[in-house]
Computed example of a mutant assay.
Amino acid sequence: MDLSPIAEDYLKTIYHLEDENGRPVRTGDISTALDVTSPTVTSMLDSLDERELVDYTPYKGVELTDRGTETVLQLVRNHRLLETFLMEHLDYSWSAVHDEADCLEHYVSDEFTRRLATFLGEPVTDPHGDLIPDSDLKMPEKSPYTALTEYEPGDTVTVEQVPHRDPDVRDYLSRHRIGPGTQLVVDEVSSIDLVTVVPSTTETSVALPTHVARRIGARVVTK
């Protein structure tokens, strides 16, 4: 399908907002996520609706169609395989790899992606712990990891999945040396929407807003 990278970014944004907030997606949320004006969003949604990639109803919101979802899942597969390659073979850090893959994902062919997946050994998750759609563009039903918010004070866990699309969150976690593979001790789960953890990398308490901690997947460390 001949879509511009900008149009593909709109579809990806809708996909992620659907996942985070449910359907339908408000145009104002798209405007904020992409830092564009509301009239610009409306114009693009009209175009995507004409191509049957979204169902857009003014003042009510927008949803991806099956065709739109398939387009996005191919982009997501491209992106996550590229991230895996860049980290495993070009020594990118987990906090830097997202933006690089964002640029490249629009320009690789399906054949390249197929060969890349074979070369990498058909990985199921990317370096951030996010699931990778398979070659049939089917997404595994659920993450193999448990949200950090589900653990109790005193639990020791290993981080396997980190939120990374928001650069502020990504930078905060990176600055406190919390990333895939980091071992944490859950120190406190407060009533004011904070989870305090102690990373083994620094042994200094770090406060995480609940909405961030909920998106950090981890495995318990067995003793």
Rank of each mutant, 00 (worst) to 15 (best):
131 L>T: 10
133 P>T: 14
134 D>N: 13
134 D>P: 01
138 K>D: 14
139 M>G: 00
142 K>A: 09
143 S>D: 11
145 Y>M: 11
145 Y>P: 12
146 T>M: 09
147 A>L: 04
149 T>D: 04
149 T>N: 05
151 Y>L: 11
151 Y>D: 04
152 E>R: 11
153 P>Q: 10
155 D>M: 01
156 T>S: 10
157 V>W: 05
157 V>P: 06
159 V>F: 03
162 V>Y: 08
163 P>F: 07
163 P>Q: 01
163 P>W: 09
164 H>A: 06
164 H>T: 09
164 H>D: 09
165 R>T: 04
168 D>E: 13
169 V>F: 07
171 D>W: 12
172 Y>S: 07
172 Y>F: 14
172 Y>V: 00
173 L>C: 10
175 R>K: 14
175 R>N: 12
176 H>L: 01
177 R>P: 00
177 R>A: 04
178 I>H: 01
179 G>P: 01
179 G>S: 14
181 G>I: 06
182 T>Y: 00
183 Q>T: 13
183 Q>L: 00
185 V>H: 08
186 V>E: 03
186 V>R: 00
187 D>M: 04
188 E>G: 01
189 V>T: 11
192 I>G: 04
192 I>S: 07
192 I>A: 09
193 D>V: 02
193 D>C: 02
194 L>H: 08
194 L>T: 09
194 L>E: 14
195 V>G: 02
196 T>W: 08
196 T>G: 01
196 T>C: 04
197 V>D: 05
198 V>G: 07
201 T>L: 05
